[in-house]
Design a protein around this nucleic acid. Structure first.
Lengths: 196, 196, 196, 196
DNA sequence: CATGAATGAGTTTTCATTCAT
DNA sequence: GATGAATGAAAACTCATTCAT
């Protein structure tokens, strides 16, 4: 048990080190030794806990996706659903996504990196497919209370997620405040109810 | 003058070779020799025409952005503007963007690659800022005929471009036909008029 | 005493594991962890029982040589010497060597491996010198009943051992049955008497 | 043409460097940098001319086998066949093999090394099969003038080659002069005629 | 201008060995 | 005695870049 914890601890430490590295360099340009340096461990350790650089990447992507999904679940759990009207709840959800996901620049940078890796790596692509499919589904089930046509609801859900990801992309390209991303998101958040 | 043209010809040949390479591998994994092989030239000439690998990249990005912008201009020039109502014209423009830009998988792959490079390369980021700013502006001026509030028009324009880029991203992540990207875009194209 | 036996038991277990490993990989490519895995022990214990990888090798070679020499002694002990004519006995001995030593492919593989190690390792070379010297001597004393000239008897003995080792080598190079090694050995076995 | 020659020259230079290295260390322990150092070239060059370490090995083995086969052909060509009786010719051939092949310690060391590599490398094994098959065939056709039974002639040929290789092996294991290898070979050379 | 041989820094990976628990 | 985490040296290999011809 203690052993297992040490292992998991070390693995996490390495994944967090990669996370930090990716704010500076691309995964490709981040060397195993870079990650080891940031993690404060010997580079050999990384090969002890992972089978190779790709294995680190795959575990890292799971970690990132799990992390933001559990953040979402956690937030949802902390909400007192009884106090909201349906529309009010959607407004809250959108607010959460805007501020914690889309406007989280560091997270967005990571995702742009992952998108690029997915271009050439089927396993990574699968992980993204799954993550986005789930997201689309959950948004769809939420707005389906407002839209009868189920197909249309799903399409709207896809469009919304695409929009958010596009905005997240812009947040990595434009300096903070320069494009007015925050205003666009806020405007969208408050009008979506009417639009639906 | 002739000399200049030969030089430009050669450069273009190299940039097109890089374009082909990027459908197979990331820029990082594409070697100078890969590009030279596809271009059918000796790898030494790449260092004659460009100062280094990064210089090739920078020129390539200019080439890609110029290329799709001139495609757009060309398409616009080929349209007989007199035959359209305002709404009809917007519908046509959206159709063009959907089919020629957003649903152009090869182009989308290139852009995902460029987004990632821009994360860590300020010069590339500047090029993207400029390109997206211009796009947002042009869309904005187009829809401003339908929306009085200029700030709102701009925000809608940003949202639309973000949406398109998000959809382009999805087209690189999901296998063709699996997410229903085409339907979402078509639906969006025909409803946007009403929404505005 | 019991302690000693446990230790010897463990050592033997490790040497047998190396034996199994050498059917798959060269000694150089066999890692300490490979041996430990096959032995079913933690790799740390290998450094407890032996001073290092080379020490394991040296002990292993002793084990292999002892093993096949004791096999020979054991076989000899099981023979009822009284029932044989001198020539008949030689025929039996040759049959044993052919079938149990020379045609023992696994053993031959091990020896090819050891020959190579001996090229660059004087200690291993010494062990082989001793083993082959003893073998030559014993064959020599056996055939000396048929050959008066002692020098010639020794030379014939050397030639025979060289021939066997050459045939053993061929058995590792050629697929079973492809060269006709068995026939050559059998023919040699039955004619040697006449030749002598 | 000049280009080709430079390439072949360099390749040969590298193969000869490996040859020198193998007198000191096993192929496995010989690093690419070792070879480069002995060849007096940058280690990158080795990857320029060969696809990897194994490619160097394979080319080296071809080089060694070709080399000693062309030595044999050259020697044969230099002999005035008219001056020999059949038996006298065989005596000469055996003398050549004894002195230039079997007693060539450096060559024998190389072959012991190659035998070991062949244990785990099918491509190398094939090369040895081919080389030994040809050798056996050629010896067989030579002695077939003295032996009517073709099958027996072939078996004798196999036995002789095996014997030579066994003696070559002994020359790498025993210090020069200690076992009396030279005498055994000489005795064998002069008696083989009678035996046949 | 074009060629391709050469350089050398940098990367991932393997592994014998050590050592604290 | 046993365990497995950690170390660090050394390996093969890649590749942008340089430069003599």
């Amino acid at each position: 048990m203690a052993r297992k914890n040490v292992q998991e601890e070390r693995k996490l430490q390495i994944l967090k080190a990669l996370d930090a590295c990716l704010q500076e360099k691309s995964f490709e340009k981040t060397s195993i030794k870079d990650i080891a340096r940031v993690a404060g461990v010997n580079h050999g350790v990384l090969h002890y806990y992972f089978t190779g650089k790709e294995d680190i990447l795959l575990n890292y992507i799971d970690y990132v996706i799990d992390d933001y999904q559990s953040q979402a679940r956690e937030w949802l759990g902390s909400q007192d659903l009884g106090t909201y009207t349906k529309s009010g709840f959607i407004d809250e959800v959108f607010g959460f996504i805007n501020n914690r996901i889309t406007l989280n620049r560091n997270l967005s940078r990571i995702f742009v990196e992952i998108w690029e890796i997915a271009l050439y790596n089927g396993e990574v692509r699968s992980k993204l497919q799954e993550a986005y499919s789930r997201w689309v589904e959950e948004m769809g089930s939420m707005i389906s209370h407002h839209i009868e046509d189920k197909v249309f609801a799903r399409n709207v859900s896809i469009a919304m997620v695409a929009f958010w990801e596009g905005m997240a992309l812009f947040s990595t390209i434009f300096p903070q405040g320069s494009l007015g991303i925050e205003e666009v998101l806020k405007g969208f958040q408050h009008r979506i109810i009417e639009i639906l």
